[in-house]
Amino acid sequence: MIDYFKSVWAWFHTILIGMKITFTHLFSKKVTIQYPNERYPIPHNAKNRLQLYPDLCNGCMQCARVCPVQCIDVETIRVVPTDPDKPVMGDGTQRKLWVSVYDIDFAKCCFCGLCTTVCPTEAIKHTTDFEYSSYTREGLIYHFSAMSSEQVEQKKKLFEEWSAKEKAAKAGKVAEPSSVEKGEN
């Protein structure tokens, strides 16, 4: 019988305690904010959407290799010595590869940040932009290459012409060691 009254009292008592707590919260400062108008600061190192700076990218493809989900798609064309543009990179060094395709599929990206750490030229960076949703999957594929399709065609043609010439030259002087091959790295 005592237990019965005790438990009835406990019901009543603990409910009052709970009501007191919620009542004090009724007038406390609110923690939510009006999101698109005001927002909490995002730290500068936040790992959100990736951004490529094409003039810094040397086309080494390390990012594409290290990506755990294979969301980065890179294609390069060799810069031939006869190129009229004489391209330089952002840091002033001679460009060795044209980056004709650099696509990132953000539907696949897992924001692990591995690509940014392996990049030797710091061409790929995480930004603090997280509002890039899209209605289509294609809308989430970002094309970062700075080259237009005409340019790509032109550079491809240049490379083909050059490599055909090289081949011919090679075939001409088999005995001699070939001219200095410009490797990828």
Partner: peptide
């Protein structure tokens, strides 16, 4: 929990899946 996630975000850059 949100306050804890802010620390993670400041340290690692991600709120939930850190690497």
């Amino acid at each position: 929990r949100e306050y804890i996630l802010w620390i993670f975000e400041k340290a690692s850059g991600a709120r939930l899946l850190f690497n």
